[in-house]
């Protein structure tokens, strides 16, 4: 499905990163990242495996601490907030994990209810059911409500993972390799779902991937992460209209031109 035009507010960055650095032991993964994600925008972060793409979104969500740099998410500098403030901020950020990370001891319903019950004090049973049905309907998997995660296919697990993040009405969505390990048809379905989420729930998203089809179909803007820094940023065509030997093979080895 062709991506519909989305209105992006370029005056209002929901995430702003300056000079972000992160090392693991002696290996510097991120070496001075600057990034803005604007309200309503889908930003795709492209890069080879091991370049620190997932590290970037884990730092944004507070799962990892940066070594250096300023990270402002929805107006809060995450280096200087209390645990309570971080917890409140996390409710406004949805994180879709690469392997879905569904709670395998709970049914789909319980998976979806879990964050809702713990974050919305005083919510009634009826409200919980309505919310669960709404997000399941949004990802097109209402029939799986009583199934266990082990009974779902890879694509279904991804969708339920996305539904679980949507249930808290996040303002920002972080997708970690949303199409990894899926067949091409399911990949396209997931890409469509990402676009639908952007339009229906008015979210701003960072999509981490090395799948160019996903990048082209979902991204309003692409940022290419190479050697710990964003080397090229722009639309899909702008990023790949280059003879840069570090970027070109990335494009050539994928099957879209």
């Amino acid at each position: 499905m062709e991506k519909a035009k989305v209105k992006v507010d370029h005056t209002n960055p929901v995430i702003s990163i300056r000079g972000l650095e992160k090392s693991f032991e002696d290996y510097a993964v991120l070496r001075g990242i600057d990034l803005d994600l604007y309200q309503g925008e889908n930003l795709v972060v492209l890069g080879r495996s091991g370049t620190g793409k997932s590290v970037l979104i884990k730092i944004i969500s507070g799962l990892l601490r940066p070594d250096k740099g300023e990270i402002t998410v929805l107006g809060k500098n995450i280096a200087h907030i209390t645990d309570r403030e971080l917890q409140e901020l996390r409710i406004r950020i949805g994180f879709s994990f690469q392997n879905s990370a569904l709670y395998d001891s709970m049914t789909v319903r319980k998976n979806l209810e879990f964050p809702l019950v713990r974050n919305r004090k005083g919510i009634t049973r009826k409200e919980i059911d309505t919310n669960v049905e709404t997000v399941l309907d949004a990802v097109g998997l209402s029939q799986t409500i009583n199934q266990m995660p082990s009974e779902l296919s890879g694509g279904q697990r991804k969708r339920i993972g996305i539904a679980r993040t949507l249930i808290l009405n996040p303002e920002i969505m972080l997708y970690d390799e949303p199409t990894a390990g899926l067949d091409p048809i399911t990949c396209i379905e997931i890409n469509d779902l990402i676009n639908e989420v952007q339009q229906r729930f008015n979210t701003s998203s960072i999509i981490i991937t090395h799948d160019l089809t996903c990048a082209k179909q979902t991204g309003d803007r692409i940022a290419m992460l190479l050697e710990g820094q964003f080397q090229r940023t722009g639309t899909f065509d702008e990023v790949f209209d280059t003879n840069d030997s570090r970027v070109k093979p990335f494009f050539d080895y994928n099957f879209i031109k």
């Binding site: 409140e88 409710i91 994180f95 990370a101 569904l102 879990f114 964050p115």
Partner: peptide, 17 residues
């Protein structure tokens, strides 16, 4: 197993403890 399959991280980022 919950740690290595990122289920604990998923709980953390969804604002639960």
């Amino acid at each position: 197993s919950m740690r290595v399959t990122e289920q604990i991280d998923a709980m953390e980022v969804s604002g639960t403890k």
